[in-house]
């Protein structure tokens, strides 16, 4: 582990952006630190040039959760505990709330932040499938620019994102889901707390006269990064909701995962289980919405 490291604690977003405008190669943003600190300790190559940590925890606007007319915005540095205990999230984003509740332990949830989860972009990031089915966009700022992008586009590969060295994620925007949406989140770990997910699944759908009007499907830990399944979603649209459809969707998900991921040491277990549990998830949603 590095013998010394400098920590800066800017108090405003402008201050953060100012710091990021120079010496970027030696700077690393830190929020909860649940990935950065362990990464530094384990001498992860991702932090080999890090000499200065920029702590974004002291900027109030990065922690706000607000209900706007069309969207809900969540500050990038909102912790999982803050999100879990927030009434807007409870009322409007139950799938995110459930995903958050499965993360680590109370201590980890008290520190870890939502942007940290996807900026790190581990395949097993628990909130990613939930954010993907909510069509989340993220706002990114640097000294000279401000942009908004879909999370799916932001995520580029395992531990890789679009984020540039001078940029910071400021907020997550989620279009307010209409009340006709229903859905669920599923996580499988080797134990029921402090568990890295083996499989995560998120589904959001809108039924109309027993047909699927809209559906969004995402998974984590079974593909190199959390991902949506557009082909599966298109296939499902306007189909009658019945047991056969669910079985077909689940098996198609299996095929898609083989296409994306190929066969790995864990496939013998994960492939049948992800299909089975996706089917179970759909059946559960069907039962609750009928």
């Amino acid at each position: 582990m590095k013998t010394s490291i400098e920590i800066l604690t800017p108090k405003t977003l402008t201050e953060i952006l100012g710091i990021l405008s120079e010496r970027q190669e030696i700077l690393t943003l830190i929020a909860g630190g649940t990935d950065v600190i362990t990464g530094l300790k384990q001498e992860s190559k991702r932090f080999k040039d890090t000499e200065v940590l920029v702590d974004v925890n002291h900027v109030p606007e990065l922690k706000e959760i607000k209900h706007m007319p069309e969207k809900i915005t969540i500050g990038a540095a909102a912790t999982f505990s803050e999100i879990y205990n927030n009434s807007i999230v409870s009322n409007e984003l139950p799938i995110l709330k459930k995903a958050v509740s499965t993360i680590g332990s109370m201590q980890i949830r008290n520190r870890a932040t939502i942007a940290g989860n996807f900026v790190n972009n581990a395949p097993c990031a628990d909130t990613v499938p939930a954010l993907l089915v909510y069509n989340a966009t993220i706002e990114i700022e640097s000294m000279n620019s401000k942009r908004e992008t879909y999370l799916q586009e932001f995520l580029q590969g395992p531990y890789k994102t679009q984020l540039k060295k001078d940029e910071v994620v400021t907020k997550i925007n989620i279009p307010v889901p209409t009340k006709s949406f229903t859905g669920d989140f599923y996580k499988l770990g080797r134990r029921r707390a402090v568990a890295i997910s083996r499989i995560t699944l998120a589904v959001l759908m809108e039924l109309k006269e027993n047909k699927i009007n809209k559906i969004r499907i995402a998974s984590g830990s079974v593909t190199p990064i959390g991902t949506r399944f557009p082909e599966l979603e298109i296939f499902a649209m306007e189909n009658d909701v019945n047991d056969n459809l669910f079985k077909t969707l689940a098996s198609r998900m299996g095929e898609e995962i083989i296409k994306i991921t190929g066969l790995r040491w864990s496939s013998a277990y994960k492939l049948p289980v992800v299909q089975q549990m996706f089917y179970q998830l759909l059946k559960g949603i069907e039962r609750r919405s009928l």
Binding site: S251, I258, P272, Q276
Partner: peptide
């Protein structure tokens, strides 16, 4: 019984919740 050469599940392999 899982057939590892057939990783995509058949309808009959899905379980009643």
């Amino acid at each position: 019984e899982l057939d590892l050469s057939q990783p995509v599940l058949k309808d009959s392999q899905y379980m009643n919740p």
